[in-house]
């Protein structure tokens, strides 16, 4: 059960998106997310939606996986939709009942928000689906490297991210093991109220923390033995290189941006 949790899951493949430079992909994804909020009407948002759909097809990520990544936010989607339908003021009333009135503007805003969130999640999931965690941390490290000017230890941050990714599976296994050991001693993790359940977690959390600290301590030793001394003077085996493909991708995103601005401006009336 606990093994089903996947964080930043990567799907191996060799699509165009997989082959893009991770830095470019990360930066473009960031821009893409900003652009979603630039959309002012259904036309520009529609353009973004079509673009997202196109990317999904290009990434060769199975559609079913995309749906899966949307599942956890389903409740947020419904909540957003309902809230917007009920509380958007103005517009023509389509349906009135007791104190509730549903207007065309409400429906319009709700639909707009839902599409926006879907595009947002899909776009950013595509990044993690097509980029290995290692490349992603590398990319973030390199993109954030200007922050070094402000004495922020970007290397250290990236190392921490890598270690976290490295130890997630190990700790999940550990939780499984400890849970089984305590269940074998009759620990009841499944019944009772909130307080009883929270209490039942103690026999799992304490050993987990102790083990995590022990691991961290040993890991620090091992890293020192391998001459780790922070980022200064450190080289990297895997070099990142921008290719024509990456600039083409940047060009596409720029076109999209232009398209959004154009549609926003041209069809102001629809806002």
């Amino acid at each position: 059960m606990i093994r089903d949790i996947t964080i930043g899951q990567y799907l191996p493949g060799d699509s165009v998106l997989h082959r893009l430079d991770a830095r470019m992909k990360t930066a473009l994804t960031f821009l893409f997310v900003i652009m979603i909020f630039f959309c002012k009407n259904f036309l520009s948002l529609g353009l973004v939606a079509v673009f997202t759909l196109l990317l999904t097809v290009l990434s060769k990520v199975p559609f079913r996986m995309m749906i899966k990544s949307l599942k956890p936010i389903f409740i947020i989607l419904v909540f957003t939709a309902v809230l917007n339908i009920l509380y958007t003021g103005g517009g023509r009333e389509l349906f009135g009942f007791w104190k509730i009135s549903i207007t065309d503007k409400g429906l319009y805003t709700a639909g707009f928000m839902v599409i926006r969130i879907i595009c947002l999640i899909t776009g950013s999931s595509l990044l993690t689906y097509t980029t290995t965690p290692t490349h992603l941390t590398d990319a973030i490290e390199r993109l954030l490297s200007p922050l070094k000017l402000f004495k922020i230890q970007v290397n250290t941050l990236a190392m921490m991210m890598t270690l976290a990714l490295r130890f997630i599976p190990t700790l999940i296994e550990e939780i499984d093991r400890i849970m089984n050991a305590q269940k074998a001693r009759g620990a009841d993790l499944e019944s009772g109220g909130v307080i009883k359940r929270a209490k039942a977690l103690i026999p799992i959390l304490i050993p987990l923390f102790i083990s995590a600290f022990r691991r961290a301590y040993e890991l620090a030793f091992a890293m020192e033995c391998r001459c780790y001394h922070g980022g200064d003077g450190r080289t990297r085996m895997k070099q990142m290189k921008l290719s024509a493909r990456d600039f083409a991708a940047a060009f596409c995103v720029a076109l999209l941006f232009g398209g959004i601005i154009f549609l926003n401006y041209k069809f102001k009336a629809l806002i």
Partner: peptide, 23 residues
């Protein structure tokens, strides 16, 4: 508790990277 990277070859590269060896 001594493997630092998420991929085998990246882990082996960790020491030489710390030493500043050419890629």
């Amino acid at each position: 508790n001594q493997i630092v990277a998420t991929v085998v070859e990246d882990d082996v590269a960790f020491g030489p990277e710390n030493l500043g060896v050419e890629p």
